[in-house]
Design a protein around this nucleic acid. Sequence first.
DNA 1: CGGTACTTTGACCAAATTCAATCACTGTGG
DNA 2: CCACAGTGATTGAATTTGGTCAAAGTACCG
Lengths: 249, 249
Amino acid sequence: MTANAQASHRLRAHEARCQTCSLSSLCLPLALNMEDIDQFDAIIRRRAPLRKGEVLFTQGDAFDCVFTVRSGSLKQITNENSGMEQLTGFYLPSELAGLDAIDSNCYPGTAVALETTTVCEIPFDRLNALSEQMPELRTQLFKSLSKELHEDRRMMMLLSRKTADERLASFLVNLSQRFRRRGYSPYSFRLSMARADIGNYLGLAVETISRILTRFQTQGLVDIRAREVHILHLDGLIELAEGECQGGR
Amino acid sequence: MTANAQASHRLRAHEARCQTCSLSSLCLPLALNMEDIDQFDAIIRRRAPLRKGEVLFTQGDAFDCVFTVRSGSLKQITNENSGMEQLTGFYLPSELAGLDAIDSNCYPGTAVALETTTVCEIPFDRLNALSEQMPELRTQLFKSLSKELHEDRRMMMLLSRKTADERLASFLVNLSQRFRRRGYSPYSFRLSMARADIGNYLGLAVETISRILTRFQTQGLVDIRAREVHILHLDGLIELAEGECQGGR
DNA sequence: CGGTACTTTGACCAAATTCAATCACTGTGG
DNA sequence: CCACAGTGATTGAATTTGGTCAAAGTACCG
C-alpha cells in the first residue's frame, strides 16, 4: 500500500462518505443517484464513536436528528411514569433510530450504545427539505417508517401470542437474518446485549432467558458460550419460532 | 329547512368534502390552507359505507391506498403462517389505516368494519406526489406514521410489562381519551368490538376480559352493560392503568 | 319466537415469575 | 500476577397469574 493510499484510507475511515460506505445499499440513500447522494451526504454529521453504555439521545430531549448506525449497535429504552422500563428495540448497522420522535417532537426513549458504536447524524428538518426535491429519498423515508411499523406489529404478535420458547427462537432467527442481510454469517455472531436486555425486550424474566438458552443448547439447536452464538440448526429454530398455536389464547 | 338546503345537505352527506368535514381538524389535511385542501380533496375517493363485518382490504392485497375512517370503526387483523391471529389495532374516525403497507407494497393485515363504517380512500401514489408540493401535508404524513410507531411502542410496553388488569384499564382509558379528542363524551361510549377482539388485542383470553370487567364493575370503577360503557371513576382507572410495577419482570 | 353468536362464571391447570443461592467472567489495584 | 469486588449468568423451589375447558346465561337478528 502506498503512502497515498494509506492516507486516503485514513480519510475515509475518519470522515466517511455515503459514496464509499459499505452500507449504502441498505441505508437511506439506497435509491439515490450519485449526484443526489452527494447532496444527501452534505447534510450528514459524523460523530466521534460512542463507547459502550454512552447515550446517543435521552428520552424527552427535543427532537432534531435521526441517526443511522454505521458500526456497533444501540438499544432504545422507554420509561413510563410508573418506573416501568421497556426496551423497545435494537438498532444494527444501516438501521435508522429516532423516527418515533417526529410526531411528538421529542425522543420517546433513550438510545444507548451496546458496544463501541458510530452513527451518522441526520438533521431531520434538512432531511425533510431534501425529500421535497428527491422523490426517491422521500419514498425511502416513508418505507423506513412503514417498515418499522411493520416490525412493531410482528413484535406485538410475538408479545401477545407466543410462548417464551417461541419468542427466544424468533429473536435469534431475526438477528440471524439481519446479520445475513448485512453480509455477516447468519450462523455465528456475537450478542452485543445482555440477557437482561433480551428479557426486557421479549417481555420475559432474565432467568427464563437463561433457562431456555440452556435448553436450546441441550437440544442441539445452538451452541452458546457467554455472548458468542453458533446456530447449529437454523431450520429447527425457525420452526420453533413460528409455533403451532392453533389460534389459541 | 328549504328544499334547497335539504338538497345541499344530502349532497354533503353523500360526497362529503374535506372543507365541510367535521373531522378536518384531526385528519391529514389539518395543516393545509383552503386552496391546498381543495387539491387534496380532489384525489380522495369516497366509498359506499361498509356494513359490519365487511372487509376494507385483505392481508396480502397489493397496496395502493390508505384510508381514513369517516364514521364507524375498523379493526386490523394479521395472520401469521402458523394460524396465529393478532388484532393489531382499532381505527376510529380521523385515523389513518394502511400506512404499514407502504414498505412491503401489500397490506400486512386485513381491515374489517366493526359497525357500519364510511372511509375516505386516498391513493398513496397521488398522496405521495402531492406531498412534494405541500410541505405541511408531507410533515403531517410523517407525523402520522411516527405517531403510530409511538402508539405501537406503548402497546409493546403494555403487552410485555402490564398485568391483565392494567391492560384492560389502559385500553378503556385510551378509548376514553380518543373519544374526548373527537368531541364525544369520555365517560359514556359504546364498544364497537366484541370481548374476543379486546382479548385478542390485549393478549388476553376472552374469559379474562369478562372476569376483569365484572371486577371493575363491582369495584365501582365502571358501569358496563353489554357494550355500553360508563366510566364512573376515570382517575381510578388511570391509576390502575399506570400500575406500580417497580421495573420488575 | 327461535337460533346463533356473544358473554359470563366456575374449576382446574400450566407456564412463567419470583425469590434465593451459586457460579463465572471481567477488570482493577495491590 | 493474583486476589477480590462487582456484574452478569445460571439453577432450583415455590408461587402466581392467567389460560383452558366446560357449561350456562344473555342479547341480538331475522
